[in-house]
Write a protein that binds this DNA or RNA. Structure first.
Length: 891
RNA sequence: GGGCGCAUAGCUCAGCGGUAGAGCGCCUGCCUUACAAGCAGGAUGUCACUGGUUCGAUCCCAGUUGUGCCCACCA
């Protein structure tokens, strides 16, 4: 049996979730801190804490409050899904921001809600129906919409549950849904206003049509990807008058109504105006001159299909060509003849085959890589289609939206992301807003028997009587979400909420929906409210897996946030996400990282528990610094510096940095040094020293408040136990008292250096922890005197008599700690170590000497740099002298 | 075809004109009277390549290579 397979004895652990549940549920403060279990078990606690926060109304904002408002509206998740890590990420940031502001005394509102997600949701429900062998047409419009509402109730609830689990401090009393009555009214009001202002119009144009969803979609709902196609050259015409055109979509030739050449192309000037026989049909088509044609591409002759291609549509309009539609809404050929009834792809091969038979295929390139549009919802190949749709005239709105960022009324963070915004806003085409769907806001337009068109506002009666019908289409889902920042606050009514909370402060969202959503909100906000919807746009990256790969179902690397929250707690997930949040960059995350964050939460838990058991307290005033030890002053100095640092990072949305600063302060400084050093005082007389206990209480109190926005759950139980306060949610955000003590910081740096050096010595020497080493600790100089006992304790050194065999001396500020050790010391090991240090010091001396001998350097380098090099040089010299002496002593 | 970004430790990423950093991982020793989800000690980098600017370049500039993303109606 190998050593590795010998099971390690299982250590008795004190895991008892029930204890904690009792503690947190029934009593704010346990009888004794020892009642807190030694391991933090988040799963059971978090839910209870959350519900208590909600019951107490901590997250409900008051529009009548005198406090300064701070508002964030949530990017409404689609009711179609469940929340993924990307949501968890953004929610963590928004929650941390609002929690901090609430603690700072703002009237903080984080408004929750969901988006009806028209096409996406309709597709889901249609899928569900398909499983029952039904279609939406079988149900009829009203019944189908009822089904979708049912679906919304079921799945929307799941999302809300996930938000609670994450700890989202949202105001549930203000929860909104884009199909709510109030929001529908906002949609109709805006539609009417835009219609009256001439910003909404109806026109027949080529749009992106999804033959599977059976609706128009906007340009940005089309995803282009490189597909393998087939480029063929077709010969049209007969005898002298033939042309050769290239196409990847041969089936559209049935709808060709012209061939175009460039007006200046000398090769084809003679053809302009001639009629060409179109194969497979009995039609002839003209040759037209249009400067859109690129003479360099292919033959310089282009087939023109105005009803099935956006460019050709424009050419058709310029030359007044007929527009022949050759397929129906499902992409099936409708032209009478041999191809009728064939699907567009079947028709393509059939037509190529037929032309090949006639010898009219001159060249075939297969495969031919080209960019093809797909429906972003169902991936079906988009079919450009001529149809009548409603449009928004974007230019004036986009201008205003762009100006708002240009003149700084809205700031984009990080700033270099703003180029994406401008690229879009400055080049936006008109927006197709009608969708041939049933789920969504129905277009408030009625058509009369004589072709009259009436747009009806929300408080107006639609025209009655024979022959009047409402437009069957609904609006693009982004039309209603574009109104979100003010429709959720009660607009078009002049509500107290609207007055208090609009414009909102910051929008936190992914850079991937700048065009879909951010730009639209900016357009609607400036147009409808005459005021920007938010002062700051904080763009986040996308959450990726631990190797930076995109999370997708096909890679199989999608993670349900609930799984990780169940295993490691919400705090762990939140901390991990926050610590990965460098502005604008994607956020990789892996399970091991969440585990590490769980360990951090556990560390906070245990260290605080330990401190509580040993007299950390917030009772009474903080003692005067003159009564404190240098260690006390050091940690308070660091505490206040950390408060300032964290605040600065929050103001700049630097979540990764503030998370790191918090962990460093808590773990490295408070737990590993301050608590450890305090142990001596704690244990010295069996009772904690009063001053240190109070200082430690202060440090923990502030630290927990500082941590709370990111890790709300673990901090709540500990903080209420420590302080007896009602809840850290409504505690005051710490502020920098301004206390700094450079002297104490320097002294502690020296102590740390000394202690580390001695530990290193022990490790090098292979001294066992339990092994008592007779030694004498000399403090040369006084500043360290206060720490003699702590160091002795940590090292387990015992004062002894004479008889030394080896010496290690340690450099500290203004003093040398001479550590004389007796006993079985490995002289060779120490000699090797010292030699290594000596070599490093000599290298340093050489480098600094060379630098200081460089006149150009001395002349041009700034003083502080030169001083730094000088200091380094003298330090190196001292080190060398010291090390040489030590080596000599070793004999 | 345009535009933007990135290349730093085994992995994921900070950083920055003046001695290379963190987390995780790794090596060694430890069940030290809170925490082994822990403690202590340690190792690890031609900062992609080639030039240039500078007293000094991982950092600024140019080019090269690799890589990612966004936009675009190339028939």
């Amino acid at each position: 049996m190998s050593a590795a397979s010998v099971p390690k004895p299982i250590r008795e652990r004190d895991i008892d979730a029930r204890t904690l549940a009792v503690v947190t549920e029934n009593t704010q403060r346990p009888e004794s801190p020892a009642d807190l279990p030694t391991q933090y078990t988040p799963a059971e606690v978090e839910g209870k804490l959350y519900e208590r926060w909600v019951e107490r109304g901590y997250f409900e904002a008051d529009a009548k409050s005198e406090k300064t408002p701070y508002t964030i509206v949530i990017p409404p998740p689609n009711v179609t899904g469940s929340l993924h890590l990307g949501h968890a990420f953004q929610h963590t940031l928004m929650d941390a921001l609002t929690r901090r502001k609430r603690m700072q005394g703002y009237e903080a509102l984080w408004l929750p809600g969901m988006d009806h997600a028209g096409i996406a949701t309709q597709n889901k429900v249609e899928q569900q129906l398909a499983e029952e062998g039904k279609s939406r047409q079988d149900l009829g419009r009203d019944e189908f919409v009822r089904r979708v509402w049912q679906w919304k109730e079921e799945y929307g609830g799941k999302i809300l549950g996930q938000m609670r689990r994450l700890g989202d401090g949202v105001d549930w009393s203000r929860e909104r849904f884009t199909m709510d009555e109030g929001l529908s009214r906002a949609v109709q009001t805006v539609f009417k206003k835009m219609y009256d202002d001439g910003l909404i119009y109806r026109a027949e144009r080529i749009i992106n049509w999804c033959p599977r969803c059976l609706t128009a979609i906007s340009d940005i709902e089309v995803e282009y990807q490189e597909d393998d196609g087939e480029l063929v050259q077709l010969q049209y015409g007969e005898g002298e008058e033939t042309v050769v055109v290239a196409t990847t979509r041969a089936e559209t030739m049935l709808g060709d109504t012209a061939v175009a050449v460039h007006p200046d192309d000398p090769r084809y000037r003679h053809l302009i105006g001639k009629q060409i026989k179109l194969p497979l049909t009995d039609r002839t088509i003209p040759v037209v001159a249009d400067s859109h044609v690129d003479p360099e591409f292919g033959t310089g002759q282009v087939k023109v299909t105005p009803a099935h291609d956006p460019n050709d549509f424009e050419i058709g309009r310029r030359h007044d060509l007929p527009m022949i539609t050759v397929m129906d809404e499902r992409g099936v050929i409708t032209v009478p003849g041999p191809f009728e009834g064939l699907d567009r792809f079947e028709a393509r091969s059939a037509i190529v085959a037929a032309l090949r038979e006639q010898g009219r295929i001159l060249e075939e390139k297969r495969p031919y890589k080209h960019s093809v549009g797909h429906c972003s919802r169902c991936k079906t190949t988009i079919e450009p289609r001529l149809s009548m749709q409603w449009w928004v005239k974007v230019a004036p709105l986009a201008q205003a939206a762009g100006d708002a960022v240009r003149d700084g009324r809205t700031k984009i963070h990080p700033a270099d992301m703003s180029s994406r915004y401008f690229d879009w806003v400055d080049n936006m085409h008109d927006w197709t807003i009608s969708r041939q769907l049933w789920w969504g806001h129905r277009i408030p337009v009625w058509y009369g028997p004589g072709g009259e068109v009436v747009c009806v506002g929300p408080d107006e009666e639609p025209p009655g009587g024979e022959g009047w019908t409402q437009d069957p289409d609904v609006l693009d889902t982004w039309f209603s979400s574009g109104l979100w920042p003010f429709s959720t606050l009660g607009w078009p009514d002049e509500t107290p909420d609207l007055a208090k909370f609009y414009p909102t402060d910051v929008l936190v969202t992914g850079y991937d929906i700048i065009f879909f959503w951010v730009a639209r909100m900016m357009m609607f906000g400036t147009y409808v409210m005459d005021e920007v919807p938010f002062h700051t746009i904080q763009l986040t990256g996308l959450v990726r897996d631990e190797h930076g790969k995109k999370m997708s179902k096909s890679f199989g690397n999608v993670v349900d946030p609930l799984d990780w929250m169940d295993a490691y707690g919400s705090d762990a997930l939140r901390y991990t996400l926050a610590s990965g949040a460098n502005p604008g960059t994607d956020v990789p995350i892996g399970e091991d990282w969440v585990k590490a964050s769980r360990n951090f939460a556990n560390k906070i838990w245990n260290a605080t528990r330990f401190a509580l058991m040993n007299g950390a307290t917030v009772e009474g005033p903080l003692p005067d610094p003159s009564e404190m030890s240098a260690t006390d002053r050091w940690i308070l100095s660091r505490l206040n510096a950390t408060v300032a640092e964290v605040d600065a990072y929050y103001e700049d949305y630097q979540f990764a940095k503030l998370s790191d600063a918090l962990r460093h302060f808590a773990w490295d400084e408070v737990f590993d040094w301050y608590v450890e050093l305090s142990k001596t005082t704690f244990f010295a007389g069996g009772r904690p020293a009063e001053v240190s206990g109070r200082v430690l209480g202060e440090v923990l109190d502030v630290m927990l408040r500082l941590l709370h926005p990111v890790v709300p759950f673990v901090t709540e139980t500990l903080w209420t136990t420590l302080t007896g306060g009602e809840s850290v949610v409504v505690a005051e955000w710490p502020s920098d008292s301004g206390f700094r003590d450079a002297e104490a910081e320097a002294e502690l740096a020296a102590v740390q250096q000394a202690v580390t050096e001695v530990r290193r010595f022990r490790a090098d020497q292979g001294l066992q922890p339990g092994q008592k080493v007779p030694a004498r600790l000399d403090l040369d100089g006084t500043p360290l005197a206060a720490h003699e006992e702590p160091i002795r304790q940590l090292l387990r050194l015992q004062p002894a008599g004479d008889g030394f065999q080896a010496t290690a001396s340690l450099p500290v500020v203004g003093a040398t700690v001479a550590l004389d050790l007796s006993g079985a010391i490995d002289v060779e090991a120490e000699r090797k170590r010292l030699a290594k240090d000596l070599a490093a010091a000599e290298k340093e001396l050489k480098q600094t000497t060379a630098k200081l001998g460089n006149e150009a350097f001395l002349a041009k380098a700034p003083d502080h740099v030169v001083d730094k090099i000088r200091t380094r040089k003298s330090a190196a010299e001292a080190d060398i002298e010291r090390l040489k002496g030590q080596i000599e002593k070793l004999g």
